[in-house]
């Protein structure tokens, strides 16, 4: 199934804000690009190189082997566990805007033939915030990966815990951490890819618990919000503060990889961690990697 078919199969055509096949305009340089061209370019502006935020299904199509992905727990959706004002309406709007049932898509798929458990968060759904369903889906994925001895690859983007679910959201940080821990104790590999933006409670839990932590160039990654820091301390934030490059410099991510090369980097890392009896990579790694953009 092509990406177009995948997207149209999951998104009702009546949802105007869903990532339709319309041209998009780059927020950084203002260049408008046809959707198909953007897709071929991994949702990178061909004019200035800025990264568009990716829809979960665009990411799945971009990274996973075609047709290899089976979604898990796709029908799970949030209730309103603490009866928070206007939350049901917010959820309905988020579903319309994103075409998703919740802020994460989980499943099992293959990257260059390597089977792995995959979760992809989506900032179009309430800024990718984590409530009980996001926590539950990711926990179940790690538990499944532990039972089936699969590596976990995660694409993270989130504003943090979802305040509309109060303390129950906060506790998801502990819940997911427990599942990550079990997976790790069982010898499982976990590769989080931090994308723009990864902040708050997500950074303070499973974003920073990877065996190898990858980030996309220029992604905002941090715990406290920038405005909050400025207001609290009265200090001016340094250039590039909380960007992926800043985290690399301070030792908090292992590597920054560009989108066109990301699939190959993940495949390489997955294969480097396979048990010796499984087939080796046949071609030299270098020949698989697209050239660096700049």
């Amino acid at each position: 199934m092509s990406l177009k078919d995948t997207i149209s199969s999951i998104l009702p055509h009546s949802t105007p804000a869903a990532p339709a096949q319309e041209p998009r305009t780059c927020k950084q340089c203002g260049t408008t690009t046809a959707y198909e061209e953007l897709r071929k370019n991994h949702m990178i502006c061909p004019s200035c190189g800025a990264y568009y935020r990716m829809h979960a299904w665009e990411r799945i199509a971009d990274i996973l082997d075609e047709g290899s992905f089976t979604e898990l727990d796709k029908a799970m959706q949030s209730s309103d566990p603490i009866s928070f004002p206007n939350y049901p309406q917010k959820l309905a709007q988020a579903k319309q805007a994103s075409g998703l049932q919740e802020a994460v898509v989980c499943g099992i798929g293959k990257i260059e033939g390597v089977r792995c458990a995959v979760f992809v968060m989506d900032s179009a759904f309430m800024m990718g915030s984590m409530g009980t369903i996001v926590g539950e889906k990711i926990t179940r994925l790690f538990e499944k990966a532990t039972a089936q001895k699969l590596p976990v690859v995660g694409f993270l983007t989130s504003g943090g815990a979802r305040m509309q679910e109060g303390i129950l959201s906060l506790m998801q940080m502990a819940k997911v951490s427990g599942a990550v821990r079990k997976h790790s104790d069982n010898g499982g590999l976990y590769l989080p890819v931090l994308t723009d933006p990864t902040t708050g409670g997500i950074t303070a839990s499973f974003a920073m618990q990877g065996d190898i932590i990858l980030a996309e160039p220029h992604a905002l990654i941090g715990f406290a919000g920038q405005r909050v820091i400025e207001q609290t301390t009265g200090e001016k934030l340094p250039q590039g503060f909380q960007r992926a490059e800043f985290l690399l410099e301070h030792g908090f991510v292992d590597l920054i990889e560009e989108r066109p090369r990301l699939r190959f980097m993940l495949a390489n890392l997955l294969k480097l961690h396979q048990k010796p009896e499984t087939p080796k990579m046949t071609k030299p790694f270098r020949s698989l990697m697209p050239e660096r953009r700049r």
Binding site: T203, A204, I221, A224, I229, T233, E235, Q242, H250, F252
Partner: peptide, 10 residues
């Protein structure tokens, strides 16, 4: 604060 972020609060 800035230093807390630099030293990896998250």
């Amino acid at each position: 604060g800035i230093q807390a972020e630099q030293r990896g609060q998250g």
